[in-house]
Computed example of a mutant assay.
Amino acid sequence: MKQGSRTIRYDEQLHLEAYSFEGVAQSFPQHFHAYYVWGYAAQGERLLTCCGKQLTLAAGETVLFNPGDDHGCVQSSEAALHYLALNVPPETMARLAQELTGSEQLPRFAPAVVSDREAAYYLRSLHALIMNGAQAFAKEEALLLLASLLLERYGAASCPAAAASDTAVEKACAYMQEQFAQRLTLENICRAAGLSKSSLLRSFTRAKGVTPYRYLQTVRVSRAQKLLESGETPATAALLTGFADQSHFTNTFTNFIGLTPGSYREMFLKAGREYE
């Protein structure tokens, strides 16, 4: 029987594990874990037994297992399983719960299988960030967005949004505008704004229409444009605007602008030569 590919990565910054199964046809007997499992079926269909209930996990659906939930599954379609998941230890979940609800009480999620496009999108996005070794800021933000959504919709208790003033959001913006070249973290920005991480994330996104991380990326790309326009090299622009490395700078800049930093710089150099 073809075993398919399996990839696992432990993220030391988020304190959780991401893994993927692709092309896997094997069955999994009833078992349980000491941690939460948030999973997404990208392909394939499984007959799932969880806590005595018979369920179907179809492509596009998400599973939510609590610590101690017994579960097992068998393949029920011709397509082999392609499955992405996050294993979240209770201590990591407790920190998330404290941040998002003000209490470290561990939640219980239900039902075990949900059809939720938004939850699936956030889970896939976070999984990709971890697998690709993204910066801590982007990963932490993605984790908070996912955990907040799951707690609000499927947790034992709702997670009401905390109130925050426009002044606090503007403080966060000002801090990022001033310190964009530094290695910023979500904690740095929250301290400057005087808000908790969850409060800032909700209030900032509501007020600005983008997350704090996307806002910071926009500031950095905007400043890099000015540097490139003045003739600075892409390497120097990346260094002066706080990007982790040249590859990250090039990818982000290209995604935002539609041109590589080198091509963008060349446009202005060419324009300058034309006017000499």
Rank of each mutant, 00 (worst) to 15 (best):
129 L>T: 07
139 K>F: 03
44 G>T: 02
160 P>V: 01
76 S>Q: 11
186 L>P: 12
46 R>I: 00
120 A>S: 09
81 L>F: 07
69 D>A: 02
115 S>T: 10
144 L>A: 07
101 T>A: 14
75 Q>A: 13
114 V>K: 08
77 S>W: 14
62 T>R: 01
95 R>I: 04
80 A>P: 15
116 D>W: 12
73 C>F: 04
119 A>C: 14
105 Q>W: 12
138 A>L: 14
144 L>I: 04
189 I>M: 11
168 A>Q: 06
169 V>Q: 01
148 S>A: 05
88 V>I: 15
68 G>C: 11
179 Q>H: 14
44 G>A: 01
165 S>G: 10
57 L>R: 08
149 L>H: 11
66 N>W: 00
53 K>I: 10
44 G>N: 08
79 A>G: 02
108 R>T: 14
48 L>I: 12
144 L>H: 08
160 P>A: 12
128 A>Y: 01
157 A>H: 13
94 A>K: 08
171 K>E: 11
145 L>M: 15
137 F>M: 15
168 A>Y: 03
66 N>S: 04
130 I>H: 01
44 G>D: 08
69 D>V: 08
154 Y>F: 13
46 R>V: 02
160 P>Y: 14
46 R>N: 08
188 N>F: 06
161 A>F: 00
175 Y>H: 13
80 A>Q: 12
114 V>H: 07
185 T>Y: 09
184 L>R: 07
181 A>M: 01
174 A>E: 10
82 H>V: 04
140 E>V: 00
159 C>R: 09
62 T>M: 12
68 G>V: 10
89 P>F: 00
140 E>R: 03
160 P>G: 13
101 T>M: 05
69 D>W: 00
76 S>G: 07
106 L>T: 02
55 L>V: 12
53 K>R: 10
53 K>F: 10
68 G>E: 15
80 A>I: 02
49 T>S: 05
147 A>E: 11
91 E>K: 09
82 H>T: 04
113 V>I: 15
170 E>C: 04
46 R>T: 06
141 E>F: 02
120 A>D: 01
130 I>T: 05
161 A>G: 11
141 E>W: 02
78 E>I: 05
143 L>M: 12
165 S>M: 09
184 L>K: 04
135 Q>V: 06
176 M>Q: 09
129 L>N: 06
60 G>M: 07
181 A>R: 05
68 G>L: 11
156 A>G: 14
168 A>C: 08
151 L>E: 01
175 Y>M: 10
113 V>M: 06
87 N>M: 07
56 T>S: 03
118 E>Y: 06
171 K>P: 15
57 L>Q: 09
70 D>F: 00
117 R>Q: 12
77 S>C: 11
102 G>A: 14
127 H>Y: 10
57 L>F: 02
69 D>Q: 06
167 T>M: 05
100 L>D: 03
82 H>R: 10
158 S>G: 13
156 A>E: 14
72 G>L: 07
